[in-house]
Design a protein around this nucleic acid. Structure first.
Length: 117
DNA sequence: ATTTTGACGACCC
DNA sequence: TGGGTCGCCAAAA
């Protein structure tokens, strides 16, 4: 019994949002990573959808980027600029619309951080 | 019911 | 790096 099949869209949404909220300030996570942590492997696009519809004011949506580190919005778009600004404000280095390698190292630590009590 | 559309991702060149 | 293919899936058309 796979978790995904029994979960209602409402439950999946809640799990995804929870996973997003679990990403600490100063680090980033990929859409696919969030999906995986939410028990929904392969549902990266679902994560994107949920974020787009969430509307939650205090949701750290800006910490979610593509698996290659790039910002998922069209370059120079309002949302793109906003995400860059918010990440930088948290100390994440953004170069050419993508999380710099230096900051990505923190992602690996994040994995251990989230999976280890 | 079938097709198109995404805040995506793994792969391959 | 950068571009194109194919897989994925819930909504919208």
């Amino acid at each position: 019994m796979t978790l995904e099949s029994s979960a209602t869209s409402e439950e999946r949404r809640a799990r995804i949002l929870a996973a997003v909220r679990a990403v600490p300030a100063g680090s980033t996570a990929g859409y696919g990573d969030i999906a995986h942590r939410a028990g929904l492997p392969g549902r990266a696009r679902l994560v994107a959808r949920v974020l787009a519809e969430s509307g939650e004011a205090d949701l750290p949506w800006h910490r979610i980027v593509r698996s290659d580190g790039k910002i998922a919005f069209p370059p120079e778009s309002a949302a793109w600029k906003k995400q860059c600004a918010r990440l930088r404000r948290e100390g994440v280095e953004i170069v050419n619309g993508r999380v710099a390698m230096a900051s990505r190292v923190a992602e690996d630590d994040l994995d251990a951080l989230l999976w280890r009590p």
